[in-house]
């Protein structure tokens, strides 16, 4: 059981990736990221507000020496748009001297209601971004066959969703995640698999890690909690608990009891 998480040339001791969206203030975000003890934070690429440049920027509140920035292609509904966003993000992060310029969280979505990925466009965009030299971490459905195809297309990490983005439903199909992990790690046990999206609370994170995921990426579960900083602390412990439990090897489930206290040496029954 390795202690470091390796994705391409990246290496981290924290296995929790945290998003920077939806916090009530940048100050709360900063405190939540610190409480989560994460090393990787995700960001999005959007138009600069040209008429309101006095507004505070996210970049003033992220310690770029401390965090590796993982840019996403959130909001993209075509492979072409996702590739454009990835290249813009690379240019931005190169300008900021952040190691995150080398990678991207690829999202190609199918529709706004479900925010579920478009599998065909996701596969196509993965191939193109890998060809363009990106370390691609790809957000995908929890379909094990698609996960395998994305790995074969060159994705450095496959990131199946636990549930729809921001839904807080947790790991809806643990069996699919289990099979995806089996497929992706066959003859390649260190291949990194990160459960991305759908986490509502700490136990969801633990379930993902107990299944054998290498990490969890989340945002809304922390940012929209009543107390984001406290929830971020819980998520940190949930990652640790799940990883430890996975490494420890759980007992098999069984239908009937097995006594913890031996029946040997009992005094005479009164019956």
């Amino acid at each position: 059981m390795s202690t470091a998480l390796r994705i391409g040339t990246f290496e981290f001791h924290s296995r929790l990736f945290v998003g920077t969206g939806k916090y009530t203030s940048y100050e709360v975000m900063q405190q939540a990221l610190a409480a989560a003890r994460c090393q990787v934070v995700t960001v999005a690429v959007r138009r600069e507000r040209l008429y309101d440049s006095q507004n505070r920027s996210l970049l003033d509140f992220l310690d770029l020496k401390r965090y590796t920035i993982l840019p996403n292609t959130a909001g993209c509904f075509t492979a072409e748009d996702a590739i454009r966003h990835a290249r813009l993000a690379r240019e931005l992060l190169e300008g900021l001297n952040n190691p995150g310029s080398k990678w991207v969280k690829l999202e190609v979505l199918a529709d706004k209601k479900t925010l579920l990925p478009d599998p065909v466009a996701t596969l196509q965009a993965t191939r193109e971004l890998v060809r363009d030299g990106f370390t691609v971490l790809v957000y995908t459905n929890d379909d094990p066959v698609l996960c395998r195809q994305l790995k074969e297309a060159g994705a450095a990490s496959v990131m199946p969703a636990g549930a729809p983005i921001g839904s807080g439903l947790g790991i809806l199909n643990p069996n699919n995640i289990r099979i995806a992990l089996e497929y992706l790690k066959e003859n390649d046990p260190d291949y990194p698999v990160i459960v991305d999206a759908g986490v509502g609370t700490a136990s969801d994170v633990t379930v993902a890690m107990e299944l054998g995921a290498d990490g969890v990426l989340l945002n809304t579960g922390v940012a929209s909690a009543r107390d984001p900083v406290r929830m971020a602390t819980a998520m940190y412990h949930a990652i640790e608990a799940g990883r430890l439990a996975w490494g420890a090897g759980r007992i098999p489930k069984r239908a009937y009891a097995t006594a913890s206290s031996t029946f040997d040496g009992m005094i005479n029954s009164s019956q």
Binding site: T20, K22, V45, R46, L59, N72, L217
Partner: peptide, 10 residues
């Protein structure tokens, strides 16, 4: 012309 920057996201 598109001018973009980094903003909060998940």
């Amino acid at each position: 012309v598109e001018i973009v920057t980094l903003v909060g996201g998940g």
